[in-house]
Design a protein around this nucleic acid. Sequence first.
DNA 1: ATTTGCCTATCTACCAGAAGGTAGGTAATT
DNA 2: AATTACCTACCTTCTGGTAGATAGGCAAAT
Lengths: 183, 183
Amino acid sequence: MSTKSEIIRLGDAFIKEKGFNGFSFSDISKKLGIKNASIHYYFPTKSDLGVAIINDELDRLHNAINEVNDKDPDEQLRKFLSIYISIKDQNNICIVGSLASDLSTLDEYMAAHLKILVTTILNWVTAILQNGLNKGTFKFEIAPRTKALLIITNMLASLQLTRLTAPEDFETIHNTILKELKP
Amino acid sequence: MSTKSEIIRLGDAFIKEKGFNGFSFSDISKKLGIKNASIHYYFPTKSDLGVAIINDELDRLHNAINEVNDKDPDEQLRKFLSIYISIKDQNNICIVGSLASDLSTLDEYMAAHLKILVTTILNWVTAILQNGLNKGTFKFEIAPRTKALLIITNMLASLQLTRLTAPEDFETIHNTILKELKP
DNA sequence: ATTTGCCTATCTACCAGAAGGTAGGTAATT
DNA sequence: AATTACCTACCTTCTGGTAGATAGGCAAAT
């Protein structure tokens, strides 16, 4: 892997572990065995790195969306939920939750790209739910967009919260979401 | 108000606005017109301040719990939800969500006190829901503790997320939670 | 075939400011 | 006399960031 993509990968991991204000260029350069200045060569400012990390996440999200594009809504939703499961397995939190928490410390560029990421997720889940409702795969009484917001907030905050409650709570929430959608 | 409680009040506000790693002693001292060293007089370390802020939140939570202790479950739940509404009105996020996001950068003392705060909230909401279920005020099919987790995660993450989606989303989520509990 | 020159990816060395924190002093209050 | 609530002055480490050097690779011009 190239140095540039290694920097993005490590920055992404640090945001999920410690938050955007919780890591420094030194944290990355020490792990890679390079100097701080080499990171500035690829990313002039920390915000430039932040934007690159968000765009990288957006790329992977688009890949995930395309991967299950022609599958049924149940499988699509499971694909969505599996993203959070793998974050939980690493004892991290989701990048959206991490950056949204620090929103007022981010500059306009990072905020704008974060907004695109959030909108993409929300639109994807809304479409999955709408589709599942039409096909009879899912059953719920509220607007698909609202249901999407409820499910996304459940997953996002359960990553943050269940590190402080019982270890099995995350899985309980995950299973309950699927169960409650069943017709 | 005493300087000490002003420091706690400002620290609390900064955590909700910028996160624990997003503010410094200078941010507080400048706002209060005192010197950094004066904050260290009351709180030797930043973690000491963090613990005091969490304990202060816990005090206010206990007050809120006692305030509606003999009211019906519907009013108790509205009291709980009103806490998030007033945070939203200030365009901030909840302190639990903020600190839980930065969990791995907090020391053991802050983490332990944060855990107490989370547990207190979860137990309170679980009790409200259990009570409402017994009395027929609420209707839901899952375990009260699980339902509490779902509602808390909805509120917590919607504060973070809805700053990036549509402005009315927060209120929609709030109203949906109440509506779905109706028998 | 060799020189010239530019591009890439790193380095060394440095900077100003902010971070959290400490030591010791002082003036007013109890 | 002791305590409280500040202050000045200072320290160390870390922060994001900059300037300029270097060494290798490629590629066109001589």
